[in-house]
Amino acid sequence: METTNRLGLVMASYRGGKSTLCAGCGHNAISERVIEACFEMGIDATHVIKLSGIGCSSKSPAYFLSGSHGFNSVHGRMPSVATGALLANHRLQAIGISGDGDTGAIGIGQFVHLMRRNLPMIYIVEDNGCYGLTKGQFSPTADLGSTLKSGVVNDLAPIDLCAMAIELGASFVARSFSGDKRQLLQLLKAGLAHRGTVLIDVFSPCVTFNDHRGSTRSYEYVRDHEEPLHELNFVPFFEDITVEQEPGAVREVDLHDGSKVFLKSVAADYDPTDKLAAMRLLTDTARRGEYPTGLLYVEPDKVDFCTQLNLVDEPLATLPLERVRPPKSALDEIMESLR
């Protein structure tokens, strides 16, 4: 008998359309993890909205959660569309998919302000260091010295989207690798349990244009340079599981909905609630050419944008007329002040 989740649904009900991306594209693996995470968390797909900008990455919302509304918007502008949608209905679970060009170049302005607002959503950057859909030009996250297939060398230092997100106010910032199934799944589930901006920068190699020797986003290169910070164990609020803990070696992070993340450090102890430590880590590892992955920074109690706006509990979108049109006395009062 097929496994069902707490809603009684099978994994297949979280699938989407058939991917039209290249075979072996890292983005397809990420879509798979989103499907698994939503299934395992028992997410109600009808209350999920999937949003994206433009690019290969931004096609992927069509490939998961066919039971959810999707919005493939314009290049670099997914953040504002997501912001509006969540203002209209702050009960929705928003999953945004963007790319490194969509976010780091044309959309950097909106990215910055979404992070700053701590909008409650999951924002996945499918980061392959290049523009796939226009045949492989460098993107702003391409590493200094990495090469295009044609041999052209990138002579600008990359934008570190995670460092930016932490600096700007995102309350859950992680980096992962599309090839690291387990870690990415744990991060996505933890992200679904968090209330606030969840930024996951996922290195997701482009098999067609950026998987060659000289690329620093090839499967081989990322696998060789990925340095997981910790072993991540996510325990959702609805599961009563005790995790064996060696005192001192495992950190526990309590998330908004009662779920927990247990982090067992791989090398040096790493505290993901320490903002300065996170920035230092990213600076140091960048200098060494390493890709630390895992939960870089988390601030579980930070107030999200919709809470800050003090919205009524019900979605604004469906408030009845009598709650959104003030009475005649209000109009009269305003007009009296103008007489």
């Binding site: 919005f71 502008r77 569309v81 997501a82 912001t83 509006g84 203002l87 209905n89 979605p315 979108a317």
Partner: peptide
């Protein structure tokens, strides 16, 4: 740009924006 993006996102999700 973002202002109208928010309006469209909100209207798409059912609000009068």
């Amino acid at each position: 740009i973002a202002a109208l993006g928010m309006v469209l996102g909100a209207a798409w999700a059912g609000a009068r924006a």
